[in-house]
Design a binder for these strands. Structure first.
Length: 567
RNA sequence: CGGGGCGUAGCGCAGUCCGGCAGCGCACCUGCUUUGGGAGCAGGGGGUCGGAGGUUCGAAUCCUCUCGCCCCGACCA
């Protein structure tokens, strides 16, 4: 491609709203342009990168036995009502009506659509297993889209769904996809980790997220410094304390103290001069199973995802002030487990406390010398949010917390959708059963953005070769010099003939401008052609990822480039 | 949804407090010079100042309403 003909508008400055490197650089490199909040145009250079990611995904998915399909982006409400998600998916689901006032939505994910597709034609276990995928534009009306392609409202996703007659088959496919995903992200040149994850509104029994490690990531991931344990922070377990209770003898009885206006852990801790780890924090939640209290040590935080899972509640939220007052008899800030009439769930960190301090369920009062198991009873579990250095749930190691970008997610769904929507088959014995499902997603645009996030410097993008929009970038220093242009065009032709994708900067610009743009765009190999080096029969070859250029004989250029690109 | 902020040329911004010719840098067009890391000089084009209404002799500037965007929080494959 000759640059003069290409629609490649680069920018010296990025728009003020571009905060992270990938967003700034993709804007500046002329890859993307914003159309509305979280909605982007893909310009030629950007689309080339997206196509590279898609190609890798297609090759690996096909290689793993999956088949590509295409489903509509506009989906009828009936399907979503059948699964029950029309009412629970919330405002992220963009709903619309057609001219006949029939309800539709823009597909944020396609479990309903694919289950409908399969139930129409799958009758027998002989037709299973099946893995179908598509690469398609999705729409989720995110509360706060940001970071360019990283978290758009409209985005390209590869979503695959598998259908099985048996659990074993579904789990085998889960492992197959786990391996496939690992290969895909390796081929994309991404530094990633697979972590155990929450299943969220998609549902299902277990799942892994594939996280690209980057400081700008929006997710926190927890990993063990000793064993291979890794999980999303929402999921991350913590090894409970050994449970050897301290002797109760000599302990004082509980005592009420006045704490006017002291509501937060910090206030109470400061006022009574006791460290936060001696406080018992009490949170009141309104759940599908009634109002409950959750306890955690004052310096820790409740992990709501874990609590929700322990409760098995479908709805779950912190209680409002009114509910708190009704249930505890006191304003928010003075709740405590002693004498409370609602079910109490406590984190292990509370179990072995001695001389604890907690709310008295009475305005402006706390009680001290509290001993769990003596002064109140509760169900104990691992309910708190993991912190740096917490003990690993699997081994004697310690947990570390890092930031990550979720680029892929695999779920074993089970029969949630097939049961709700009647996707059944007859097994060997002629018994009708719901198909067992799995689903597997990859954010295509997010992979491209994550690649930039991991591979850039102050001058621009440094594309990993498999995702690079072009393989090499020829810069004729002076396009008005006939010999220079002739040599540049010759190199262009021979590289193109070898199957490489080549960009030739034929603009009549100063060398500095072209070098700056070349660095910004980040094509892996740059070939500089100038009368200076042509006199010695050579050109300059520079790798974007390395400092310094080498002189190479013109006739060796193709071979040299080939070595760089193919290793 | 709560709190904060911003909408002025394609991009980055000043001007708004205190009403009085709509500006600067980059980008763009023309010419000359320059030509290995975002050139210099000269000339030029481009704006319903987000929108609507109001106050005023006069509004980018003051008032009311509205739309959009951004940040923090809550929320979330």
């Amino acid at each position: 491609m000759y640059l003069k003909k290409m629609f490649l508008p680069t920018l010296k400055e990025a728009p003020a709203d571009a905060e992270v490197a990938s967003h700034r650089l993709m804007m500046r490199a002329g890859m993307i342009r914003k159309v509305a909040a979280g909605v982007y145009n893909l310009l030629p250079l950007g689309l080339r990168v997206i196509h590279k990611v898609e190609r890798i995904v297609r090759e690996e998915m096909t290689g793993a036995g999956a088949q590509e399909v295409a489903m509509p982006m506009v989906l009828p409400a009936e399907l979503w009502k059948e699964s029950g998600r029309w009412d629970i998916y919330g405002k992220e689901l963009l709903r619309l009506k057609d001219r006949h006032e029939r309800e539709f939505c823009l597909g944020p994910t396609h479990e309903e659509a694919i289950t409908d597709m399969v139930r129409r034609d799958v009758r027998s276990y002989r037709q299973l297993p099946l893995n179908l995928y598509q690469i398609q534009t999705k729409f989720r009306d995110e509360i706060r889209p940001r970071f360019g392609l990283m978290r758009g409202r409209e985005f390209i996703m590869k979503d695959a769904y598998s259908f099985h007659a048996t659990d074993e088959s579904a789990e085998e496919e889960y492992r197959n996809m786990y391996g496939t995903y690992s290969r895909i992200f390796e081929r994309c040149g991404l530094y990633f980790r697979a972590v155990e994850a929450e299943t969220g509104p998609i549902g299902g029994s277990f799942s892994h997220e594939f996280m690209v490690l980057a400081d700008t990531g929006e997710d926190s991931i927890v990993s063990c410094n000793t064993c291979s344990y890794a999980a999303n922070i929402e999921r991350a377990g913590i090894r409970p304390p050994d449970g050897a209770s301290l002797p109760l003898t000599g302990a004082k009885g509980i005592e009420k103290v006045s704490t006017p206006g002291m509501k937060t852990v910090e206030e109470v801790s400061g006022f009574l001069n006791v460290p936060p780890e001696r406080l018992i924090k009490t949170l009141i939640y309104r759940t599908g199973k009634g109002v409950i209290a959750a306890l955690v040590r004052g310096d820790f935080d409740i992990n709501e995802a874990k609590l929700k899972r322990v409760l098995g509640a479908d709805t779950f939220a912190l209680a409002d002030e009114k509910t708190v007052k009704e249930m505890t008899g006191a304003d928010v800030g003075f709740a405590g487990p002693v004498g409370l009439k609602i079910p109490v769930y406590a984190d292990f960190s509370v179990r072995d406390m001695r001389d604890g301090v907690t709310g008295a369920n009475e305005k402006d009062a706390h009680i001290i010398n509290v001993i769990p198991q003596r002064d109140f009873s509760a169900g104990y579990g691992d309910l708190r949010k993991a912190r740096q250095g917490d003990p690993c749930p699997r081994c004697a190691g310690a947990l570390e917390i890092k930031k990550g970008i979720e680029v892929g997610h695999i779920f074993k769904l089970g029969t949630k959708y097939s049961e709700a929507m009647g996707a059944t088959f007859l097994d060997e014995k002629g018994v009708e059963r719901p198909v067992i499902m799995g689903c597997y997603g990859i954010g295509i645009g997010r992979c491209a953005a994550a690649a930039v996030e991991q591979n850039h410097d102050e001058n621009g993008i440094i594309w990993p070769i498999p995702l690079a929009p072009f393989h090499c970038h020829i810069v004729p220093v002076n396009v008005n010099d006939k010999d220079t242009m002739k040599a540049a065009e010759q190199i262009y032709s021979s590289l193109t003939a070898k199957g490489y994708e080549v960009l030739l900067d034929d603009r009549d610009e100063r060398a500095g401008v072209k070098f700056k743009d070349a660095d910004l765009i980040g094509v892996p190999v740059r070939i500089t052609v100038s009368s200076k080096t042509l006199k010695q029969g050579s050109v300059e070859i520079k790798e974007r990822s390395k400092e310094g250029a080498r002189l190479v004989r013109i006739e060796d250029t193709v071979k040299d480039v080939g070595t760089l690109l193919e290793g």
